[in-house]
Computed example of a mutant assay.
Amino acid sequence: MNMIFELILVIPILLLSLSIHEFSHGMASYKKGDPTPKMQGRLTLNPLSHLDPMGALVLLLTRRFGWAKPVPINPRYYSNPRRDMMVVSVAGPASNFALALIFALALNLVGIFASGPLAMRMYGQSGGLLMITVQFLYLAVIINVSLGIFNLLPVPPLDGSKILRGVLPPSYDRYLNQLEGPLGMMLLLVLAFTGILGAIIGPIVQMVLGLMVFV
């Protein structure tokens, strides 16, 4: 696929996927009694409210993983902070998996009614609107599966670290605290740009894709 053409398809998927991810965090926290996301104007699907330039750049370069601007939350409003923080953290990746399922369903339906294998439609020289539709849906599935898996990694500031914090006894918090802030972000960037991160989540993404896309 031509790189410029792929970027044209990827950008709207990126904006939608990251916006719904952060909106889901904010709504989950709001439902748990925290007014902060609403007060900060983050209970919106407007991509400009959620876009993080570095996270968007990583997603554009890798076509697999990235991040948005975190929604501000205040766990002091939760009735059970450790449990409710886990729920709020799960909401983001769960929204990406839900989007991936929706796009995969649409892709499979297109495959059922299209003449010829999807691979032929995706990479063939002809096909027009059908080819573009297949490519868009396939990229949407890949990006959302990748975002969901990436954000479940137990490395701060990703959602997986907050889920892990809720599972482990409080005595382990100090170890996760050491990776909060710039150190954790630097670790993620090094893993991303050296290809190590792709090697870790790539096989998992392909396995999940194989379960979702079957035509």
Rank of each mutant, 00 (worst) to 15 (best):
M120Y: 05
G92I: 01
N96G: 05
A100S: 03
A104Y: 03
I143A: 13
I143D: 04
I112M: 14
N96C: 08
G128C: 10
G116P: 04
A106H: 02
M122Y: 04
G116N: 02
F97L: 13
N96Q: 12
I102G: 05
I143Y: 09
V134Q: 07
Q135T: 07
L107M: 09
A119G: 09
L107N: 00
S89R: 05
P93D: 11
S126A: 15
F113I: 14
S89A: 15
N96W: 08
L107Q: 04
V141Q: 03
L137I: 06
A119I: 09
L101Q: 06
G111E: 06
N144M: 13
L105G: 11
M131S: 15
N144H: 08
L139N: 13
V110E: 03
L139M: 14
G128L: 13
L130Y: 04
V134T: 11
V145D: 02
F136Q: 03
T133G: 14
A94P: 00
A140E: 02
S89V: 12
A91S: 12
P93V: 11
Y138I: 11
N144L: 13
F113T: 12
L118K: 05
V88P: 02
G127F: 07
I142P: 06
N96Y: 11
L118I: 14
S95G: 07
L130T: 13
S89K: 09
F136R: 05
L107P: 00
I132G: 01
A100H: 02
S146V: 05
S146Y: 13
L99M: 12
Q135H: 10
N108T: 05
V134G: 00
L99K: 04
A114C: 10
F136K: 06
V90H: 03
F113L: 15
I149L: 15
S95W: 05
Y138V: 11
M122G: 04
L101E: 05
A140I: 08
M131P: 01
S89H: 08
N96D: 07
P117A: 08
Q135I: 07
A114R: 03
R121G: 13
A114M: 11
N144R: 12
N108A: 07
G116C: 05
L137S: 06
V145Y: 08
A100T: 03
G111D: 09
M122I: 12
